[in-house]
């Protein structure tokens, strides 16, 4: 009984001291559950995120663009991997996590349910979507759970090239031919509001935020991050000579930030529910890859067993 109080005290003091919680430490069941959900959602997002961008690898318009895009999509797969293994330290298997994704039970970032219709979309995704993701990720480097924090540090190191790649594409297009400029503006028109939705519903509609902040699983609120994102990105759009598709976008001197329109939250909830433009296709693609690959995994398993590799023997 004393021990129960001790371990809880120890856990709380870790949080207070900005210390890290490691896999073998005691943790509240809620904390464990919340982490599993958050880390695995993040992992699923990386894996699903490979699809809209992978869509343009075969059609990249230069050899360098093709190489860079391949490397980026590969990084995303790697990020998914780091995160799945971080989640596994909490007592859940990769098998279970993938099962939840493939059956549609698990959530992933809504943004990846939108289609990449032109090459400019690849620029917009790198610039806006990765830009938004980076804001979330930077704060998670100091999250309380050790394996999650270490995975995020690794991810952040690799992420900065992703946003640069996207913005570079937007620059080429914005300063290119008329057709390229139009392509860039069109992509911005379609990706702007969905990106804003990436930060989640307004604070007043987000009940979990407070606990997550206490647990250092979250450092800033949805609205705070959204505001920061808009403030940073408006100037970047201005440099490109592109117009952000929000008639209410206006500098507010008093708050030293931009006023902007709320995204269409009805659209957001619809997409979360599974009614977005690509939800079905994304899940079908992952399910197909998984089932097509079953015989490969079985073969690898059988081979390892046949070789009776006693990997734990001296």
């Amino acid at each position: 009984m004393d021990n129960a109080i001790d371990v809880e005290k120890s856990f709380n003091s870790k949080l207070e001291k900005n210390d890290f919680v490691e896999p073998k430490d005691w943790m509240p069941e809620n904390y464990r559950k919340h982490l599993i959900r958050q880390i695995s959602q993040h992992a699923h997002s990386e894996i699903i995120g490979m699809l809209p961008e992978g869509n343009w690898i075969s059609r990249a318009p230069s050899l360098r663009a093709k190489m860079v895009l391949l490397a980026k999509v590969q990084d995303e797969g790697g990020h998914g991997l780091y995160l799945y293994t971080a989640a596994e330290t909490l007592g859940v298997s990769r098998d279970e996590l993938l099962g939840a994704l493939h059956t549609g039970k698990a959530k992933y970032s809504s943004i990846f349910n939108y289609p990449t219709l032109t090459w400019a979309d690849i620029g917009a995704v790198g610039w806006l979507v990765d830009g938004a993701a980076i804001m979330n990720q930077v704060m998670l480097q100091r999250t309380s759970y050790g394996p999650y924090s270490r995975a995020m540090i690794r991810i952040c190191k690799e992420e900065s090239f992703h946003q640069r790649q996207g913005y570079e594409i937007m620059c080429r297009l914005s300063f290119g031919t008329d057709a390229q400029k139009e392509m860039a503006q069109d992509a911005l028109n379609r990706w702007w509001f969905p990106t804003m939705m990436m930060f989640g519903p307004p604070d007043k509609d987000s009940p979990n935020s407070e606990q997550a902040i206490k647990w250092r699983i979250k450092r800033e609120t949805n609205d705070e991050l959204r505001q920061k994102f808009v403030d940073r990105t408006v100037e970047q759009a201005q440099f490109l000579g592109l117009t952000i598709p929000d008639k209410n976008l206006k500098w507010n001197e008093a708050k030293k930030g931009y006023d902007f329109s709320e995204p269409n939250w009805e659209e957001f909830y619809n997409v979360i529910k599974g009614n977005g433009p690509c939800n079905k296709e994304r899940l079908e693609a992952r399910n197909k890859a998984h089932s097509d690959g079953a015989w490969v995994r079985e073969a690898a398993q059988a081979y390892a067993e046949k070789k009776k590799e006693n990997i734990l023997a001296a």
Partner: peptide
């Protein structure tokens, strides 16, 4: 130590 992965053999 830098992370983990899954693999079937050495």
């Amino acid at each position: 130590h830098c992370g983990s992965l899954h693999a079937y053999d050495k």
